[in-house]
């Protein structure tokens, strides 16, 4: 465990909590893509099946349980508790265009052709693109609430910090997981355009709105 990995995990947790609190406090999930949230919940469920097979550390297991519970709670809030506020008309990204290719790819390119490993690979690939419905929704409505942009910032920062963690681990531990690295790079790149808007607009106190 190095500082970048820890900061990445914390940043990921902050993102998840920000979103949960935003929905809970405002009693509304307006502007949030339920589809992205379903994808993230699927990512956690398929990746953390190893909770039942191996024990790495108390930290590892507790974080996995927190991520899974929070992501499922978020999906519940969007589709059940605050369904009336869910902006489904703007959440029109075709998720099958992500899930089908990602599913196929995880069968073709993986570390080991076993059910657990294929599901892990699926979760890694799916996570890299799971934010697309949310970004698509923002591009459709042309704006995002400031709190939603903070959520996206921490979510993007998390994978960026993991990239630094992987460079660190390569040099100091000889650790190298090509699947995670390539997917993590794709994931981080998808946030770049958003990062630019976040720094140039949101951090200067302006609302994130896109030119028509």
């Amino acid at each position: 465990m190095n500082i970048f990995r820890l900061a990445g995990d914390v940043s990921h947790l902050v993102a998840i909590i920000i979103l949960l609190l935003k929905i809970w406090k405002t009693r509304s999930c307006a502007g949030i893509s339920g589809k992205s949230q379903i994808l993230f919940a699927s990512v956690f469920v398929t990746r953390y099946l190893d909770l039942f097979t191996i024990f790495i550390s108390l930290y590892n297991s507790s974080m996995k349980i927190i991520y899974i519970s929070c992501s499922i709670a978020t999906v519940y809030l969007v589709y059940f508790k605050f369904k009336a506020t869910y902006d489904g008309n703007h959440d029109t990204f075709r998720v099958e265009f992500l899930v089908v290719p990602v599913g196929g790819l995880s069968f073709l390119v993986n570390h080991d052709f076993s059910p657990m490993e294929i599901l892990w690979t699926f979760s890694i690939y799916l996570e890299s693109v799971a934010i697309l419905p949310q970004l698509f929704m923002i591009s459709k409505t042309g704006e995002a609430e400031t709190i939603t942009t903070h959520y996206l910032f921490f979510l993007g920062l998390y994978r960026g910090l993991y990239l630094i963690n992987w460079i660190w681990r390569y040099y100091f531990e000889g650790f190298f997981d090509l699947i995670a690295i390539v997917a993590g790079l794709v994931q981080t790149v998808l946030y770049c355009d958003f990062f630019y808007l976040y720094v140039t607009k949101v951090l200067k106190g302006k609302k994130l709105s896109l030119p028509a």
Partner: peptide
């Protein structure tokens, strides 16, 4: 092709 026995990251 590096094979990791288990995944220790989140």
């Amino acid at each position: 092709w590096p094979f990791t026995q288990y995944h220790d990251e989140l």
